[in-house]
Simulated assay, not measured.
Amino acid sequence: MFRPEFKRTPLTSGFGMLELIFHAAVRHVRKQHHNAVVGLLMSIVQSVLMVVIMVFMFDLLGLRGAALRGDFVLYIMSGVFNFATHSKTLTAVSKSDGPTSAMMKHSPMNTIVAIASAALGALYLQTLSAAVILFFYHALWTPIVIYDPVPVIGIYLLSWASGIGVGMIFKAATPWQPEFFSIATSIYARANMIFSGKMFLANTIPAGRLHFYTWNPLFHSIDQTRGYMFQNYHPHNSSIEYTIWVTFILIIIGLMGENFTRKYASLSWNAGR
Protein backbone atom coordinates (compact mmCIF):
# COMPACT_ATOMS: atom_id res chain seq x y z
CA MET A 1 0.00 0.00 0.00
CA PHE A 2 2.85 2.38 0.83
CA ARG A 3 5.12 1.07 -1.93
CA PRO A 4 5.80 3.65 -4.71
CA GLU A 5 4.07 2.84 -7.96
CA PHE A 6 6.07 2.63 -11.17
CA LYS A 7 5.47 1.34 -14.65
CA ARG A 8 6.40 -2.34 -14.92
CA THR A 9 7.90 -3.60 -18.14
CA PRO A 10 8.04 -7.28 -19.15
CA LEU A 11 11.73 -7.27 -18.17
CA THR A 12 11.15 -5.90 -14.67
CA SER A 13 8.19 -8.27 -14.21
CA GLY A 14 10.40 -11.18 -15.19
CA PHE A 15 13.13 -10.20 -12.72
CA GLY A 16 10.49 -9.68 -10.05
CA MET A 17 9.18 -13.18 -10.66
CA LEU A 18 12.69 -14.64 -10.44
CA GLU A 19 13.30 -12.82 -7.18
CA LEU A 20 10.03 -14.15 -5.78
CA ILE A 21 10.94 -17.72 -6.84
CA PHE A 22 14.34 -17.33 -5.17
CA HIS A 23 12.87 -16.22 -1.83
CA ALA A 24 10.17 -18.90 -2.00
CA ALA A 25 12.87 -21.53 -2.70
CA VAL A 26 14.83 -20.36 0.35
CA ARG A 27 11.66 -20.62 2.41
CA HIS A 28 11.05 -24.13 1.07
CA VAL A 29 14.57 -25.24 2.03
CA ARG A 30 14.38 -23.65 5.49
CA LYS A 31 10.89 -25.06 6.05
CA GLN A 32 12.25 -28.62 6.15
CA HIS A 33 14.53 -27.76 9.06
CA HIS A 34 15.06 -24.52 10.98
CA ASN A 35 18.83 -24.99 10.87
CA ALA A 36 20.00 -24.98 7.24
CA VAL A 37 23.23 -26.83 8.06
CA VAL A 38 21.37 -29.63 9.84
CA GLY A 39 18.95 -29.90 6.92
CA LEU A 40 21.86 -30.28 4.50
CA LEU A 41 23.53 -32.86 6.75
CA MET A 42 20.31 -34.89 6.86
CA SER A 43 20.15 -34.88 3.05
CA ILE A 44 23.81 -35.97 2.85
CA VAL A 45 23.27 -38.76 5.38
CA GLN A 46 20.28 -40.08 3.43
CA SER A 47 22.30 -40.24 0.20
CA VAL A 48 25.28 -41.84 1.95
CA LEU A 49 23.03 -44.48 3.51
CA MET A 50 21.56 -45.36 0.12
CA VAL A 51 25.03 -45.77 -1.36
CA VAL A 52 26.30 -47.84 1.59
CA ILE A 53 23.25 -50.11 1.60
CA MET A 54 23.53 -50.79 -2.14
CA VAL A 55 27.27 -51.51 -1.91
CA PHE A 56 26.59 -53.90 0.99
CA MET A 57 23.79 -55.63 -0.97
CA PHE A 58 26.02 -56.14 -4.02
CA ASP A 59 28.79 -57.56 -1.84
CA LEU A 60 26.38 -59.79 0.07
CA LEU A 61 24.79 -61.20 -3.09
CA GLY A 62 28.11 -61.52 -4.90
CA LEU A 63 27.00 -59.23 -7.73
CA ARG A 64 29.84 -56.75 -7.53
CA GLY A 65 31.66 -58.42 -10.41
CA ALA A 66 28.57 -58.09 -12.62
CA ALA A 67 28.92 -54.29 -12.67
CA LEU A 68 30.77 -52.48 -15.42
CA ARG A 69 34.51 -51.99 -15.50
CA GLY A 70 35.39 -48.91 -13.52
CA ASP A 71 34.91 -47.46 -10.04
CA PHE A 72 32.18 -49.58 -8.43
CA VAL A 73 31.15 -46.96 -5.84
CA LEU A 74 30.94 -44.29 -8.56
CA TYR A 75 28.72 -46.69 -10.51
CA ILE A 76 26.40 -46.93 -7.49
CA MET A 77 26.43 -43.16 -7.04
CA SER A 78 25.45 -42.60 -10.67
CA GLY A 79 22.17 -44.36 -9.99
CA VAL A 80 21.56 -43.09 -6.46
CA PHE A 81 22.06 -39.39 -7.24
CA ASN A 82 19.73 -39.42 -10.27
CA PHE A 83 17.15 -41.48 -8.39
CA ALA A 84 17.26 -39.31 -5.27
CA THR A 85 17.00 -36.05 -7.24
CA HIS A 86 14.05 -37.36 -9.27
CA SER A 87 12.22 -38.72 -6.21
CA LYS A 88 12.83 -35.73 -3.93
CA THR A 89 11.76 -33.30 -6.67
CA LEU A 90 8.64 -35.33 -7.40
CA THR A 91 7.66 -35.30 -3.73
CA ALA A 92 8.45 -31.60 -3.27
CA VAL A 93 6.48 -30.52 -6.35
CA SER A 94 3.47 -32.75 -5.64
CA LYS A 95 3.26 -31.38 -2.08
CA SER A 96 3.95 -27.73 -2.92
CA ASP A 97 1.47 -25.01 -1.95
CA GLY A 98 -1.79 -25.29 -3.89
CA PRO A 99 -4.42 -22.72 -4.88
CA THR A 100 -6.16 -22.99 -1.47
CA SER A 101 -2.96 -22.57 0.54
CA ALA A 102 -2.61 -19.64 2.92
CA MET A 103 0.46 -18.49 0.97
CA MET A 104 -1.75 -17.78 -2.05
CA LYS A 105 -3.42 -14.95 -0.11
CA HIS A 106 -0.31 -12.85 -0.72
CA SER A 107 -0.70 -10.97 -3.97
CA PRO A 108 2.54 -11.82 -5.87
CA MET A 109 2.36 -15.50 -4.93
CA ASN A 110 0.89 -18.10 -7.30
CA THR A 111 1.07 -21.86 -7.82
CA ILE A 112 3.71 -21.62 -10.57
CA VAL A 113 6.03 -19.85 -8.14
CA ALA A 114 5.28 -22.51 -5.52
CA ILE A 115 6.12 -25.32 -7.98
CA ALA A 116 9.30 -23.63 -9.23
CA SER A 117 10.54 -22.87 -5.72
CA ALA A 118 9.86 -26.42 -4.50
CA ALA A 119 11.72 -27.86 -7.50
CA LEU A 120 14.69 -25.50 -7.06
CA GLY A 121 14.84 -26.22 -3.34
CA ALA A 122 15.00 -29.97 -3.98
CA LEU A 123 17.65 -29.49 -6.68
CA TYR A 124 19.76 -27.33 -4.37
CA LEU A 125 19.74 -29.85 -1.53
CA GLN A 126 20.42 -32.88 -3.73
CA THR A 127 23.12 -31.19 -5.80
CA LEU A 128 24.93 -29.88 -2.75
CA SER A 129 24.68 -33.30 -1.09
CA ALA A 130 26.07 -35.04 -4.20
CA ALA A 131 28.91 -32.52 -4.48
CA VAL A 132 29.91 -32.98 -0.83
CA ILE A 133 29.82 -36.78 -1.07
CA LEU A 134 31.85 -36.83 -4.30
CA PHE A 135 34.41 -34.42 -2.85
CA PHE A 136 35.01 -36.48 0.29
CA TYR A 137 35.09 -39.73 -1.71
CA HIS A 138 37.62 -38.15 -4.10
CA ALA A 139 39.75 -36.69 -1.28
CA LEU A 140 39.66 -39.54 1.23
CA TRP A 141 39.34 -42.76 -0.80
CA THR A 142 40.25 -42.64 -4.47
CA PRO A 143 40.40 -39.99 -7.22
CA ILE A 144 37.26 -39.78 -9.32
CA VAL A 145 37.52 -39.95 -13.10
CA ILE A 146 34.40 -39.07 -15.13
CA TYR A 147 34.79 -39.75 -18.85
CA ASP A 148 32.50 -36.94 -20.10
CA PRO A 149 31.30 -34.75 -17.19
CA VAL A 150 29.24 -32.14 -19.10
CA PRO A 151 26.62 -34.59 -20.47
CA VAL A 152 26.54 -36.28 -17.04
CA ILE A 153 25.50 -32.97 -15.47
CA GLY A 154 22.98 -32.36 -18.28
CA ILE A 155 21.31 -35.74 -17.79
CA TYR A 156 21.29 -35.19 -14.02
CA LEU A 157 19.29 -32.01 -14.64
CA LEU A 158 17.04 -33.99 -16.97
CA SER A 159 16.32 -36.44 -14.13
CA TRP A 160 15.38 -33.40 -12.05
CA ALA A 161 13.13 -32.07 -14.84
CA SER A 162 11.36 -35.43 -15.25
CA GLY A 163 10.69 -35.36 -11.49
CA ILE A 164 9.05 -31.96 -11.97
CA GLY A 165 6.86 -33.35 -14.77
CA VAL A 166 5.66 -36.37 -12.80
CA GLY A 167 5.22 -34.28 -9.66
CA MET A 168 3.05 -31.76 -11.51
CA ILE A 169 0.78 -34.56 -12.74
CA PHE A 170 0.25 -35.80 -9.18
CA LYS A 171 -0.12 -32.25 -7.86
CA ALA A 172 -2.86 -31.42 -10.39
CA ALA A 173 -4.74 -34.66 -9.69
CA THR A 174 -4.41 -34.84 -5.89
CA PRO A 175 -7.09 -32.22 -4.95
CA TRP A 176 -9.73 -34.26 -6.79
CA GLN A 177 -9.03 -37.43 -4.78
CA PRO A 178 -6.38 -36.79 -2.12
CA GLU A 179 -6.35 -40.26 -0.54
CA PHE A 180 -6.00 -42.18 -3.81
CA PHE A 181 -3.34 -39.98 -5.40
CA SER A 182 -1.36 -39.73 -2.17
CA ILE A 183 -1.10 -43.53 -2.21
CA ALA A 184 -0.37 -43.49 -5.96
CA THR A 185 2.51 -41.07 -5.41
CA SER A 186 4.01 -43.38 -2.78
CA ILE A 187 3.57 -46.42 -5.02
CA TYR A 188 5.33 -44.68 -7.92
CA ALA A 189 8.21 -43.64 -5.67
CA ARG A 190 8.60 -47.19 -4.31
CA ALA A 191 8.33 -48.76 -7.77
CA ASN A 192 11.19 -46.56 -8.95
CA MET A 193 13.46 -48.38 -6.51
CA ILE A 194 13.34 -51.30 -8.97
CA PHE A 195 12.17 -49.93 -12.30
CA SER A 196 14.63 -47.02 -12.38
CA GLY A 197 17.44 -49.47 -13.13
CA LYS A 198 19.75 -47.93 -10.55
CA MET A 199 20.72 -51.37 -9.21
CA PHE A 200 21.77 -52.96 -12.52
CA LEU A 201 22.90 -52.21 -16.05
CA ALA A 202 20.32 -51.82 -18.80
CA ASN A 203 22.52 -53.78 -21.23
CA THR A 204 22.25 -56.88 -19.01
CA ILE A 205 18.44 -56.98 -18.96
CA PRO A 206 16.98 -59.82 -21.09
CA ALA A 207 14.99 -58.65 -24.10
CA GLY A 208 11.83 -60.30 -22.76
CA ARG A 209 11.89 -58.18 -19.60
CA LEU A 210 13.09 -54.91 -21.06
CA HIS A 211 9.57 -53.54 -21.53
CA PHE A 212 9.12 -53.51 -17.75
CA TYR A 213 11.72 -50.73 -17.54
CA THR A 214 11.75 -48.78 -20.80
CA TRP A 215 8.52 -46.91 -19.95
CA ASN A 216 10.34 -45.11 -17.14
CA PRO A 217 12.20 -41.92 -18.18
CA LEU A 218 14.44 -42.24 -15.11
CA PHE A 219 15.61 -45.65 -16.37
CA HIS A 220 16.88 -44.01 -19.57
CA SER A 221 18.50 -41.13 -17.64
CA ILE A 222 20.46 -43.41 -15.31
CA ASP A 223 21.63 -45.69 -18.12
CA GLN A 224 22.71 -42.76 -20.31
CA THR A 225 24.52 -41.20 -17.35
CA ARG A 226 26.61 -44.33 -16.99
CA GLY A 227 27.36 -44.28 -20.69
CA TYR A 228 28.91 -40.81 -20.39
CA MET A 229 30.47 -41.45 -16.99
CA PHE A 230 32.38 -44.63 -17.88
CA GLN A 231 34.49 -45.04 -20.99
CA ASN A 232 33.92 -48.80 -21.22
CA TYR A 233 30.10 -48.73 -21.13
CA HIS A 234 27.96 -48.07 -24.20
CA PRO A 235 24.16 -47.98 -23.62
CA HIS A 236 22.11 -49.98 -26.12
CA ASN A 237 18.71 -50.24 -24.41
CA SER A 238 18.05 -46.60 -23.55
CA SER A 239 17.54 -43.30 -25.33
CA ILE A 240 18.04 -39.78 -24.08
CA GLU A 241 15.53 -38.46 -26.64
CA TYR A 242 12.79 -40.54 -25.01
CA THR A 243 13.39 -38.90 -21.63
CA ILE A 244 13.41 -35.41 -23.18
CA TRP A 245 10.10 -35.92 -25.00
CA VAL A 246 8.38 -37.61 -22.05
CA THR A 247 9.54 -34.87 -19.69
CA PHE A 248 8.28 -32.16 -22.06
CA ILE A 249 4.89 -33.86 -22.45
CA LEU A 250 4.51 -34.44 -18.70
CA ILE A 251 5.26 -30.79 -17.90
CA ILE A 252 2.76 -29.56 -20.52
CA ILE A 253 0.04 -31.92 -19.25
CA GLY A 254 0.89 -30.95 -15.67
CA LEU A 255 0.55 -27.24 -16.46
CA MET A 256 -2.80 -27.84 -18.15
CA GLY A 257 -4.03 -29.97 -15.26
CA GLU A 258 -2.83 -27.50 -12.65
CA ASN A 259 -4.55 -24.63 -14.46
CA PHE A 260 -7.81 -26.60 -14.63
CA THR A 261 -7.61 -27.61 -10.96
CA ARG A 262 -6.83 -24.05 -9.87
CA LYS A 263 -10.07 -22.81 -11.42
CA TYR A 264 -12.24 -25.29 -9.49
CA ALA A 265 -10.28 -25.84 -6.25
CA SER A 266 -12.13 -24.90 -3.08
CA LEU A 267 -11.45 -25.10 0.64
CA SER A 268 -14.80 -26.85 1.07
CA TRP A 269 -13.65 -29.92 -0.93
CA ASN A 270 -12.20 -31.53 2.17
CA ALA A 271 -15.06 -30.57 4.47
CA GLY A 272 -16.79 -33.94 4.13
CA ARG A 273 -13.62 -36.02 4.37
Rank of each mutant, 00 (worst) to 15 (best):
V152K: 05
I146A: 07
I240N: 02
S117V: 08
R8I: 13
V150A: 13
D97V: 05
I169D: 03
K263W: 03
D71R: 13
N232R: 15
F6D: 10
S129F: 00
T185L: 06
F170P: 02
I21Y: 12
S78C: 11
S96K: 02
F195Y: 12
N35W: 07
A102C: 02
D71T: 13
T100K: 11
G254T: 01
A184R: 03
K95T: 04
I115L: 09
Y137V: 09
D148V: 11
L125T: 13
N259A: 15
F260R: 12
S159R: 02
F180N: 01
L60W: 04
Y188N: 02
D97K: 10
N35F: 03
H86I: 08
Y188I: 00
V52W: 00
W160E: 02
S182G: 15
H220N: 11
A84Y: 04
S268L: 09
L218N: 06
I144R: 07
Y188D: 00
P151F: 06
S182I: 07
F230C: 11
V38H: 01
F170R: 06
N35P: 05
L123Q: 02
G154M: 14
A139N: 07
Y264A: 12
W269M: 10
L74M: 12
A25H: 08
L125K: 13
N192A: 06
I194R: 09
V113A: 08
V246L: 13
D97L: 05
V80F: 04
T89G: 05
T225L: 05
T214Y: 07
M168I: 06
R27S: 15
M229C: 05
I164E: 04
L210M: 11
G167L: 08
R262E: 14
G98H: 00
V29S: 01
G254D: 00
N192G: 11
V152L: 03
G163S: 04
V26E: 13
Q177R: 01
L255F: 05
A84E: 08
W215T: 13
M54T: 05
D223R: 03
S101E: 09
P4C: 08
G254K: 00
F81D: 00
N237V: 06
I252P: 00
L134H: 03
M57G: 05
F181N: 10
M199G: 06
I251R: 10
Y264S: 13
A36C: 07
K198L: 10
L49Q: 09
R262T: 11
N237G: 05
K31T: 12
L210G: 09
P217F: 01
S96I: 04
L218I: 10
T9H: 06
W141I: 15
I252V: 11
G39T: 07
V45R: 09
S87R: 05
A161Y: 07
V73A: 09
Y233T: 07
Y264H: 15
S117A: 15
A189G: 06
I187Q: 00
T89C: 09
V145E: 14
V80C: 04
A172H: 02
G70E: 11
